[in-house]
């Protein structure tokens, strides 16, 4: 495992911890899109179907369990926790799941490396992960008041994707036959979705003002 991949995973882990910290200690999920969190839970559930059949490493297994467990518990907190759920911006978080899920499923059925159940599910999870942040970005734009933790959460998620691209470039040059078009293109699309957010994030950081996305 190279340094970019490891840093990417750690950034991903940090983003989840920031979100759990906000939910668990502040007992608030204000500004967090439940739609995005549910999509991530679906992403991990469909991608990690190999969890009990193919062993890669202890690290790999542990991280998969962490991402599965954290994504489902975040969804549980926002939907059912008696205090946390009161802070959910339900009226603002109106993105429809099936606008993203159905096209991703169709695309995975059409474009995949192998037409098997697991392979199609794995491809579906890649396509869905690429666009799963959209409800969150829409919510950020609607929320005039983005708190620090929410801003950091989205920033860390974007940083994780950017580091994965560096990881792929590194692997391409260091490993023989390392070519994965589906992973790369969906990963690139995913990272590009953060471009606008990154721009305003760095602007607010540079000028030392509160993060706010233009309508």
């Amino acid at each position: 495992m190279n340094i970019f991949r490891f840093a990417g995973d750690m950034t991903h882990l940090a983003s989840v911890l920031v979100l759990l910290l906000k939910i668990h200690t502040i007992k608030s999920c204000a500004g967090i899109s439940l739609k995005t969190q549910e999509l991530y839970a679906l992403v991990f559930a469909t991608r990690y179907l190999d969890l009990f059949t193919d062993y890669i490493s202890l690290y790999n297994t542990l991280m998969k369990l962490i991402f599965l467990g954290s994504s489902f518990s975040i969804v549980w907190y926002i939907r059912y926790h008696k205090i946390v759920r009161r802070s959910y911006d339900k009226d603002q978080d109106t993105f429809r799941h099936y606008f993203l899920v159905l096209p991703c499923l169709l695309l995975a059925l059409l474009i995949n490396e192998k037409f098997t159940f697991r392979e199609v599910m794995w491809t579906f999870s890649l396509y869905l992960e690429a666009v799963a942040i959209l409800p969150q970005l829409v919510l950020l734009q609607r929320t005039r008041n983005i708190d620090n933790l929410t801003g950091q959460y989205v920033f860390l998620l974007g940083a994780y994707r950017a580091l994965y691209i560096l990881n792929w470039i590194y692997r391409y040059f260091t490993e023989p036959h390392y070519v994965h078009w589906i992973t790369w293109i969906s990963g690139l699309v995913q990272t590009l979705l953060y471009a606008d957010f990154f721009y305003y994030y760095f602007q607010s950081w540079k000028n030392n003002v509160k993060l706010e996305l233009p309508a």
């Binding site: 991903h12 794995w122 036959h177 994965h180 992973t183």
Partner: peptide, 10 residues
């Protein structure tokens, strides 16, 4: 195989 190379990522 090539399959496992991609799937060692999270």
């Amino acid at each position: 195989s090539q399959d496992t190379l991609a799937k060692d990522e999270l």
